[in-house]
């Protein structure tokens, strides 16, 4: 391990001050499942970890049928997928949190860390994007909000400025008759990085889709919103044809690369298939609501 110091912040202001004093080589430590390995393998120069897990706003989760869901940035995944309100109202989030790593990872890993790491294949980011997620950010110039769909700028990069960090993530209460879903494809059943992942949130009136949001992971340099798939569906009746049209739009939008996990051709195909699957699952959820 490279030489580094550890500091435990007990308030948001204290964390901001520690990050400012630490300068560019200080990093937030949440669950550590990405950043400790990166420090050990010297993939990043880090000389200070600022542990945010002793700040109460960062570690609490709150749901209210009017205001929606607020999840502290470092709340471990097992608490998120184990939460009855998350399971009932935000199954897309539940599904992603449930398969990130294995049990020993889920005891520590967080949404803030998954987002902060900004991997193009990060599993929770597409779910947070379609659920209209907004990050509450604290920094040297005070507080601001950043939409999750505008957060990642390149692999490992985000709009966060030096000294800023995510305090919590907020998800609005979905409108009546809304549903959401998330799926990924990996060659085994768990413990692997997504070849492609996909999320959908939609609202229906009878058989007609009145609103839809789609997001795909591992098909571009950042997790990607897919407005063309939404256009193919909104205002139309749900039929095999309109669902297939949304899948085709996803396939068009995807600009993946060939790598050890999958090829361009396979990933485009998966974007199509997974988008059709998440539509059907989200509709089922909407109808059950």
């Amino acid at each position: 391990m490279q030489a580094l110091r550890y500091a435990r912040a007990t308030s948001i202001d204290e964390a901001v001050r520690m990050l400012r004093e630490g300068g560019e080589t200080s990093r937030i430590l949440a669950g550590g499942t990405d950043v400790i390995v990166q420090a050990r393998e010297r993939r990043r120069v880090i000389d200070l970890f600022v542990d945010i897990k002793h700040i109460s706003d960062v570690m609490t989760m709150e749901y209210d049928a009017q205001r929606g869901l607020t999840v502290g940035a470092a709340v471990p995944l097992y608490q998120i997928y184990g939460d009855a309100n998350v399971q009932r109202v935000y199954p897309a989030l539940r599904a992603a949190a449930h398969v990130i790593g294995g049990k020993a990872i889920q005891g520590r890993a967080s949404l803030g860390g998954n987002l902060g790491n900004a991997s193009p294949a990060a599993d929770s980011i597409p779910a947070m994007m379609v659920l209209d997620g907004v990050a509450q950010v604290a920094g040297p110039n005070g507080r601001r909000e950043v939409r999750v769909d505008a957060f990642c700028t390149a692999p490992g990069r985000s709009v966060l400025q030096p000294g800023e960090f995510i305090v919590s993530l907020h998800f609005a209460q979905p409108a009546a008759h809304s549903g959401n879903a998330w799926e990924r494809f990996i060659p085994r059943n768990e413990m692997d990085i997504a070849v492609v992942n996909a999320a959908c949130a939609l609202t229906i009136e009878g058989d007609v889709v009145t609103a839809a949001r789609f997001s795909l992971g591992a098909v571009a340099a950042t997790p990607l919103m897919v407005p063309l798939a939404a256009e193919a569906l909104v205002g139309r009746r749900l039929t095999d044809e309109t669902i297939a049209a949304a899948g085709a739009a996803a396939k068009e939008t995807a600009t993946p690369i060939d790598d050890m996990r999958g090829t361009v051709k396979q990933r485009k195909h998966l974007a199509d298939v997974l988008v059709q699957r998440v539509i059907r699952a989200a509709v089922e959820h909407a109808r059950a609501n």
Partner: peptide
């Protein structure tokens, strides 16, 4: 097992 939860100790700092 750290505070009742399963963790991988290679992904935890001793200081924590």
């Amino acid at each position: 097992i750290l505070d009742g939860r399963l963790v991988n100790s290679c992904c935890v700092m001793a200081a924590e």
